[in-house]
Amino acid sequence: MMLQIEHLNIAFPNPKGHFEAVKDFSLHVEEGQVIGIVGESGSGKSMTAHAIMGLLDRKSVKVSGSIRFEGVELLDLTRTQMRSYQGKDLSIIFQEPMTSLNPTMKIGPQVEEALRIHTKMPPKERKQRALEAMALAGLPNGEQLYHQYPHQLSGGMRQRVMIAAALVLRPKLLIADEPTTALDVTIQAQILDTLREINRKEGIAILFISHDLGVIRALCHHVVVMQQGEIVEAGDVEQVFHHPQQGYTQRLIASRPTRTKLKAGGSHG
């Protein structure tokens, strides 16, 4: 078992006690699997993702339970120890492609940053690896993009740059936190294709987060459904899609005609 989350609780202390954003959350991810987390906005998906990545503020957020990665309890690691996983074995891309890149840094250095942090690779080799990662992320003109700034790129391109940066060290798990929510539907479909390719070619496991079960179905084998911080349903994605046990889950299937473009492996809608 690569990633094993057991009884995860995430709470924000406030004057009235604390607010529990995630309650008793458990999830397993095997090597090379594509697992989905679906839930309405505010159901705790991003908090879960950030907890796995070690991105939650240690002072203001209380995290308990267990997150084991390859047998190592991540919640017991110091910040410095956790850093050796960030961008190396564990990577993440975010919902906001427009603001997730540094506006004053060129694309190239941003894509190869994890290499600079985690390896002693010489600059030339780093660039080579960055270009490869960009090609894998669906950016064939990496050589040209390398010297450009984020504002010169569209949202879809920026998200691909984020994907390339996340892939540059070939992580074991890529967390994709609503990577296409801010993008238009055609771009969304293309990026999902790219993620599917990445999983197939490189064997990188993906934890894919969305508020749309239709999108999850286009990509994932297995899904957990979250509502107000708790898992309300879990199982094989086709099973959940066709026979949702909860009215809540039913409502997460967006009725968009473009959904058929998402190569869901069969007709639906």
Binding site: L55, Q86, E113
Partner: peptide
Amino acid sequence: GQDYIRTAYSKGNS
């Protein structure tokens, strides 16, 4: 507090 700093941390920056 900007999003790109979260990205920087996610890559292993101190």
